[in-house]
């Protein structure tokens, strides 16, 4: 955000090429209105040697205040928001000049980011908070008197399914109609960041028959038992909901019935054994993030993970939560 003062170039510029001349001006927020006459007249009282009194007045000097067009705008802090939501930036434009002025408002997605939709919304009740009923699109402050503010919102729509951490820059431009120069123009920029869950999946395997350790590969002979461990972590900035894990990669193996264990431990035996039938029995609902319900149907493992998960619906994984899903197969 910047505010520029008016610079007046005088005739002396022509004579002295390298001399920049400007009035010793410090524009005040409350300026004397344009057109005001500033008059001044002094008086004197005196005496003669006999103490007789006399008085006189000076001439009157009159100065007319000319119009100065300036503007200020606040600089709201950057915000984050969930995908498929609208983030509202509250702006206040103040006419800091000394004459009424009208400011055109525009905003657009800036360079270097995405191209999310930007809309300018009037702050109908001037409270600086966006209310549900405030939907009036605006493109101008209308004529506002000096030292008067106009409030509005820059509304940035974060598209649905935007990945966590994606950003977009929004450039706001305010252009005054008071003068042809830039003295009553200003701008501001904000950066909006998308918040979304970001689930990572790490699958490991070990040969149980050989008492092997988990790794990315394992050697096995026919009839050996393998154990798979799938680590699911929410590394995003908001919680994930309806989390369901599906694993159908079981060529040349046969699932070992009732071998599914889900919990918070990297050691599968420490996790909770899960009923793997396809029936929702009473009480099979998770109360923590590191929990899950599952079923094994036709060689496909389906795990409903997270808090509140049951055998038909996925639960929620808070930010940084991790849950482990283990199951065993026999090599054909």
């Amino acid at each position: 955000m910047s505010r520029k003062n008016t610079i007046r170039f005088t005739g002396l510029m022509l004579l002295t090429a390298f001399v920049l001349i400007m009035p010793a001006t410090a524009v005040h927020a409350t300026g004397t209105p344009a057109g005001t006459s500033i008059t001044n007249q002094a008086s004197v009282a005196y005496e003669d040697a006999l103490n007789n009194n006399y008085s006189a007045n000076s001439n009157t000097v009159t100065t007319t205040v000319t119009a100065v067009y300036t503007v200020s705008v606040n600089a709201p802090v950057n915000q984050s928001g969930n995908s498929d939501t609208i983030v509202y930036y509250a702006y206040t434009v103040t006419n800091t000049g000394n004459d009424p002025n009208t400011f055109a408002l525009s905003a657009a997605s800036g360079a270097g980011g995405n191209s999310w939709t930007v809309t300018l919304i009037a702050d109908d009740d001037n409270d600086g908070n966006h209310d549900a009923g405030e939907v009036t699109v605006t493109a101008s402050t209308g004529s506002i008197a000096q030292d008067t503010a106009y409030k509005f919102f820059v509304a940035v729509t974060i598209p649905a399914d935007t990945a966590n951490g994606q950003t977009d820059n929004t450039d706001l431009t305010i252009t005054g109609s008071g003068d042809a120069g830039a003295g009553d123009d200003t701008s501001d920029s904000v950066t909006t960041t998308a918040q979304a869950p970001s689930l990572s999946i790490v699958k490991r395997v070990r040969n149980v028959t050989d008492a092997g350790a988990f790794g990315t590969t394992a050697n096995a002979d026919p009839n050996d038992t393998l154990e798979y461990r799938i680590e699911v972590t929410n590394s995003g900035t908001v919680g994930a909901t309806l989390v369901v894990l599906t694993d159908n990669d079981h060529a040349d193996t046969t699932y070992t019935a009732e071998s599914i264990r889900i919990g918070s431990s990297t050691t599968c035996a420490s996790n909770t054994a899960v009923d793997d039938d396809n029936t929702q029995e009473g009480g099979e609902t998770c109360a923590t993030d590191a929990c899950g319900q599952a079923k094994a149907v036709g060689g496909t493992i389906t795990a409903y993970l997270g808090n509140t998960a049951n055998e038909t619906t996925g639960g929620s994984l808070a930010v940084s939560s991790t849950v482990y899903v283990c199951f065993q197969v026999t090599v054909d």
Binding site: L20, P23, A24, N40, A42, S43, V44, Y54, N57
Partner: peptide, 17 residues
């Protein structure tokens, strides 16, 4: 008799660089 006369003038400050 004395007779004081006053004359007022005004100027504006400029900063010359």
């Amino acid at each position: 008799k004395p007779a004081l006369a006053l004359k007022m003038s005004v100027e504006k400050k400029f900063v010359v660089k």
